[in-house]
Amino acid sequence: MNETVHDENVGKWTMVIDLDQCTGCQACVTACSMENNVAFVGEADAAYGRGMHWIRVVREWNGEMPDLTADFRPVMCQQCGEAPCEPVCPVFASTKSVPEQINLQVYNRCIGTRYCGNNCPYIARTFNWFDYERPEPLNFQLNPDVTVRSRGVMEKCTFCVQRIRRGEEDANAEGRPVHDGDVTPACAQACPAQAITFGDITDPESRVAKLARSARAERFLEEVGTEPRVIYLKGNGKVVREG
C-alpha cells in the first residue's frame, strides 16, 4: 500500500531557487524563523555555532580585490529522495512522510543522538542544546500550527509542512485538487526578489516543473546521490561588458 503511494508521488513537492535573482538579503531566514517558531539562542551560543537557523545563506568569496565577487546560495534541508539522515537514526525520528513525500523530524521520537546531523552533507539540521527562553510576551507570536521544540531534539526545514497540509485541506474542503500556487512556504512568500518557487513537480504545467526543465537547473552536491528536491538555477555568471 505504502509502496503504491510512494510510486505515485515521487518527489512531489519541489522547490526551485533562482540564484541569478537571489540577492542574499536573508529575508527568507527571518521569515522562516517567524513561521516555524525557531528559537533564537543569543550571542554566546550563536558564536559557538549553535544558531538554530533552518535556512542559511552561504556567501562565497571568489577572487581578490578588485575582481572580487561574492556568490549567495540559500541552503535549507534539500528534502533528499535518498536522505543520508534517515538510515542512521536509531529511533526512526528522521523519516519520510508518506503522503507528502518529504523528510520530517518526529520530535517526540528523537532522543538526540545527532547522528542525522553528522550525516547530512548540507549541514541543514540544527540541534536544541538547551531550552531557549522566549521572554513573555514574545511567546504570543508562536505559530499554533508548528510544534515548539524542547531541549535535546534535532530540527530542520520541513518545507513548511503545516502550509502544505493547510493547502491540501482547503482544497479538499472545496472538493478540488491542489492548484499550483496554493502552497507557498514562508521563505518563498517573503523573498523580495521572488527567487524561490514551490510546487508540485509531477504536474508538468506547474511553475516548478517548467523551471526544472531550464538548462540552468542543478542540484546541490548531486554527485553524492542524495536526490535532492531543491533545484537551483545557476547564476548567469558575470560577463564584463566592453561597450
Partner: peptide, 28 residues
C-alpha cells in the same frame, strides 16, 4: 502570529524584508 506582504500592495507586491518579518518582535 505572522506578518506577510500584501499581494495587492503597489510597493511590495506581497513581499517583505527581514525587518518587516520581525515586526512582531516589536509588538511582543
Amino acid at each position: 502570529v505572522k506578518v506577510e506582504g500584501n499581494p495587492n500592495h503597489p510597493v511590495n507586491h506581497g513581499r517583505t524584508c527581514s525587518r518587516g518579518q520581525a515586526t512582531l518582535q516589536g509588538l511582543y
